[in-house]
């Protein structure tokens, strides 16, 4: 028998009995950040491919969602902060080695880029709103400039969108202390998942049939890529350290197996994959909204599951001798 236990009661808030510093707020942020990335990339891609006709929503209206979704994400991120008044400290330094610092600054750049993206199709996308801008000479000039430079703006938005999407994954994979996250696959996986959720979003809300089909096709490809990346991720962990193997156990029959395989892989990836396949063959039309909803759900579940398992995966694990709830008496 091997016993390894705390002999002094340790019940550090959010740390014990296992790390639970991040809950839905951060998962939601990572999800919305990825979605934002996808939105920017698709709005830009359509502009570059000049498919305004085929995909009018993505071409002219989609971009507006980027700052909205991102702001929602930043709100949940803010909610997660423990020392909220000091949030401005993200912007009083730049830490080259910290993906989170990169992320904070990327977010700052994302906003202007996505505004430019919106402005470049404001007149066509939001004719009710554009007159308010057109009323002012400077507004007019800006809109004119943006329309004229729509291509250049799109070409800027794509790398920034991709950076945003990848960063949400790198953010986690940079934590060597959390064996389950410590895989280079997370960046691409999160990017692809972000793109996939954005495609699903368009497929869901676009009115035009050709657009729905186009984005369902995109999504199909992306889901397929995501399945491959998930497989890669698991292979990656399986060939990793002892701690990574232990972490992997939690989805291989461990406590998270059900959420991971059924909810994420099954409901979030495979079912929509099949449904979308059927859809583009013209079948299963009546349930067309199901697949994109599941993809969006799957995108969120992926982050949540990763957040949860990653925090529980660790290098040091001690039993605790004491019932930590007793310590609550100190506060009663």
């Amino acid at each position: 028998m091997k016993e390894e236990l705390f002999v002094t009661a340790r019940s550090n808030a959010l740390i014990d009995p296992s790390l639970h510093i991040w809950t839905w707020e951060v998962a939601m942020y990572l999800f919305l950040g990825g979605l934002t990335a996808g939105i920017m990339v698709f709005a830009a891609t359509i502009a570059l491919l000049k498919k305004d006709e085929e995909a009018p929503f993505a071409a002219t209206k989609l971009a507006l969602l980027a700052p909205v979704v991102l702001s929602l994400g930043m709100t949940t991120l803010f909610l997660d902060l423990e020392h909220k008044l000091y949030v401005f400290r993200f912007y009083t330094s730049f830490q080259v080695l910290s993906p989170m610092s990169w992320g904070a600054w990327i977010l700052i750049v994302i906003y202007p880029v996505s505004i430019l993206q919106i402005l470049s199709t404001l007149r066509s996308g939001y004719p009710q709103a554009s007159p308010y801008v057109d009323r002012f000479a400077i507004g007019r000039q800006v809109l004119d400039w943006c329309e004229a430079n729509r291509r250049q703006i799109a070409m800027t938005a794509i790398p920034f969108g991709i950076a945003l999407g990848i960063y949400t994954g790198i953010l986690l994979s940079a934590f060597s202390a959390r064996p389950f996250w410590n895989s280079g696959v997370l960046g691409p996986l999160f990017l692809v998942s972000g793109l996939s959720t954005a495609a699903a979003l368009v497929a869901l809300v676009a009115r035009k049939h050709s657009e729905k089909v186009l984005f369902t096709r995109f999504d199909l490809g992306l889901i397929a890529a995501e399945v491959a990346l998930v497989a890669l991720f698991i292979i990656n962990l399986a060939s990793g350290t002892e701690q990574q193997l232990t972490a992997l156990d939690s989805i291989m029959g461990g406590p998270y197996a059900l959420v991971f395989w059924v909810l994420f892989v099954g409901v979030g990836l495979l079912i929509p994959l099949v449904l979308e396949l059927l859809e583009i063959r013209g079948l299963a039309r009546r349930v067309a909204i199901v697949a994109p909803v599941l993809v969006l759900l799957g995108g969120y579940v992926l982050r949540q599951v990763l957040i949860d398992i990653g925090q529980e995966s660790n290098w040091t694990k001690y039993d605790t001798q004491y019932n930590a709830e007793l310590l609550q008496r100190l506060r009663d």
């Binding site: 028998m1 009661a9 001798q321 019932n323 007793l326 310590l327 100190l330």
Partner: peptide, 28 residues
């Protein structure tokens, strides 16, 4: 004592694994 309570808030009964097995007792 609030300082010492938080170090060791309760006592445990130490039980050999054989005995634990016999009485179906688990750690904790």
């Amino acid at each position: 004592n609030p300082l010492l309570f938080q170090l060791s808030p309760e006592n445990q009964v130490w039980v050999n694994p054989l005995v634990a097995n016999e009485w179906s007792l688990k750690n904790g």
